[in-house]
Design a protein around this nucleic acid. Structure first.
Length: 278
DNA sequence: CTCCTGTCCTGCCGGC
DNA sequence: TGCCGGCAGGACAGGA
C-alpha cells in the first residue's frame, strides 16, 4: 500500500524504536533470508553495518534512507506489499513467510522487512552518495516541503501530454504520490483525471497542489493518531485504515446522488466522480 | 525524446 | 467447499 504517508509513518516508527535508548540503535546482525527482492540484496551490507549504530533516517518520496555512524547505509523501498515489523526488546521473534530481511538489534529488538510480492528493494548506499542514487536523483519536489506549490507543479506539468492522473504517478513530477492519493487529490481539487496534464495550470494547478498537500498531511495525521506508537499489535508498520472519498468506492454516491466511477488509465484503476470533477 | 504496455511476484476475493 | 480468473497501493525495460 505504501505511498508517501505510509512510508512516512514507517520511517517514524523505525526512528521511535531505534532511538529509544539502551543500545536500541546498535545493529548486532543483519540477515538476508533470500538472495534478492526486486533487486539483488547487497551481500556486503551485513558486514559493513554489523556492530554499527543507526545515526539517521530520511524519507524521500516513497523511499526510506537509513544511515549508520560509519557512513554505510541503505535505501529501502516497500514496493506494493512491503511492511516493516518491529518486535520490541524482550519479545520473541518468530519468523514467518516472506520475512526476507531481519535486523537484530543489540538490545534484543528485531526490525523485519516482510514483502510477499518482492517488488520492494534494499540497496546499499553511503552517507556521501545516497542523494546521487538514480532513484533519488530523478525525483521531483517533496510535496510537503517549501519546494512544492502551484506554480512549481504547473511548470512540471506543462510539457506533459498524458492525462493528469497519469502524470501524478510520475515520481519526477512530484515525489511520493501513488494510485490512491492521485485519485483523492484530484477529487479534492475538482479536476478530472482525464484532463490533459498540460491543461492543469494557474488556479487549477494551485488547487491541485493544495489538495495534494492536504490529502497527504491528513493521511499522515490519521496514521499517526490511529496507531499506537505507529505500529500495530502484530508489530507491522505501514498498513492503516483510511476512509477514502473515491478510491475503491466504485458505485458509491457522493452527496447521495453522484456516483463514483472506475476507469483504467495507463493500466491502473482510477476512481473519480464525473459530476464533481472537470 | 515521450508515452504506453507488459512484466516482475504472491495473495486474496468473487464467481461458478 | 474448491478452483480459477482477475486484480492489487510500484517501478522499470522495451517498443512504438
Amino acid at each position: 500500500m505504501p505511498e508517501l504517508p505510509e512510508v512516512e509513518i514507517v520511517k517514524r516508527g523505525i526512528e521511535t524504536a531505534v532511538f529509544a535508548g539502551h543500545d536500541s540503535e546498535v545493529i548486532q546482525s543483519l540477515v538476508f533470508n533470500r538472495p534478492n527482492l526486486r533487486l539483488p540484496l547487497p551481500q556486503d551490507l551485513p558486514k559493513q553495518i554489523k556492530g554499527q549504530a543507526f545515526s539517521q533516517f530520511y524519507r524521500r518520496g516513497k523511499y526510506i534512507i537509513a544511515l549508520c555512524e560509519n557512513g554505510h547505509g541503505f535505501i529501502l523501498h516497500l514496493g506494493m506489499s512491503g511492511v516493516v515489523k518491529i518486535i520490541p526488546r524482550g519479545e520473541l521473534y518468530e519468523s514467518i513467510k516472506h520475512d526476507h530481511v531481519v535486523f537484530k538489534m543489540k538490545n534484543g529488538a528485531h526490525l523485519v522487512f516482510n514483502d510477499p510480492r518482492r517488488f520492494g528493494f534494499l540497496k546499499a548506499v553511503s552517507e556521501d552518495t545516497w542523494q546521487e542514487d538514480s532513484a533519488i536523483a530523478a525525483m521531483g519536489p517533496e510535496p510537503l516541503s517549501n519546494d512544492f506549490n502551484g506554480p512549481i507543479l504547473a511548470k512540471a506539468l506543462m510539457d506533459k501530454r498524458t492525462p493528469i492522473k497519469t502524470a501524478l504517478l510520475d515520481q519526477s513530477v512530484v515525489a511520493g504520490i501513488g494510485n490512491i492519493y492521485a485519485c483523492e487529490a484530484l477529487y479534492m481539487a475538482g479536476i478530472s483525471p482525464q484532463r490533459l496534464a498540460t491543461n492543469v495550470r494557474g488556479k487549477r494547478a494551485e488547487r491541485l497542489a493544495q489538495a495534494i498537500i492536504t490529502v497527504l498531511k491528513k493521511a499522515i495525521e490519521s496514521g499517526g493518531s490511529s496507531l499506537k506508537d505507529y505500529y500495530h499489535a502484530d508489530g507491522s508498520l505501514g498498513y492503516f485504515q483510511h476512509s477514502f472519498q473515491v478510491y475503491d468506492r466504485e458505485g458509491d454516491m457522493i452527496d447521495g446522488q453522484f456516483p463514483v466511477k472506475r476507469i483504467v488509465q495507463a493500466g491502473r484503476s482510477t476512481f473519480y466522480c464525473p459530476a464533481k470533477q472537470s
